[in-house]
Amino acid sequence: MSIWYIIDLVGTSVFAISGALSALSKKMYHDIIAILFIGFLTAVGGGTIRDVIMGAYPIAWIRDPNYLIVIITSVSLAVFCRKWWRGALKRPLLIFDTIGLGLFTILGMQKALLVGVNDWAAILLGIITALFGGVIRDTLVNDLPLILDRQLYVTPCLAGALLYQLNRFLGLDSTFNLILSACLITLVRLIAIRKDWTLPRIEN
């Protein structure tokens, strides 16, 4: 079992938790199946879109049951620990979403590189992997997708992806590069939330 596989399962877990927390924020306590479904789509949505674009079959969660086991466990954890997380973390949904962004941007890009796509396409596919599960989640719970929010969302992903590519050309160890680049995405996103950073607006 490789470290990349373990990190992929961790990323799947945190996105599943973010999906479940988003559903719970809409008072969907009466329908555990709906909560599980939203958690599932959040966790696998971006990666599935990436694999379909690349023609990479069979898709990971279809081939490997561990992904579904992790999703079910993570959604259950989100449901049973929701009150504790609200007390311990100021904005648990954003925190789990941000961790997922960091991990899935780099994991998605690395998976694209392994099938031989060009470096720029790999960056785009990594960002798609990170963003589209959240877009599906926010759409299903009738929220404005975070990608459309005024705070920095895509930009941290792009920064981390570029750092990963630079370090790859410099010969940095791939596992250390993953951790470093994912941490950059997470850190920039968290600071952007706290400091309310935005890019300049395009005026009409």
Score class of each variant (00 low, 15 high):
P92N: 04
L93I: 09
L93V: 14
I95S: 10
I95Q: 04
I95L: 14
F96K: 03
D97S: 04
T98K: 01
I99R: 10
L101D: 01
L101Y: 04
L101R: 05
G102P: 10
L103Y: 05
F104G: 00
F104M: 09
I106S: 00
L107Y: 01
G108T: 01
A112S: 15
A112I: 06
A112V: 13
V115D: 03
D119W: 08
D119T: 14
W120H: 13
A122S: 12
L125S: 11
L125Q: 07
I127V: 15
I128G: 10
T129W: 02
A130V: 06
A130F: 08
F132H: 02
G133W: 00
G133E: 02
G133N: 04
D138R: 00
T139Q: 04
N142M: 09
N142K: 11
D143F: 00
L144N: 08
L144K: 08
L144A: 00
P145I: 01
L146Q: 02
L146K: 04
I147E: 04
L148Y: 08
D149H: 10
D149L: 00
D149P: 14
C157R: 01
L158D: 11
L158I: 14
L158R: 11
A159G: 13
A159M: 10
L162R: 14
L162W: 12
Y164G: 08
L166Y: 15
T175S: 11
F176V: 11
F176D: 09
F176R: 09
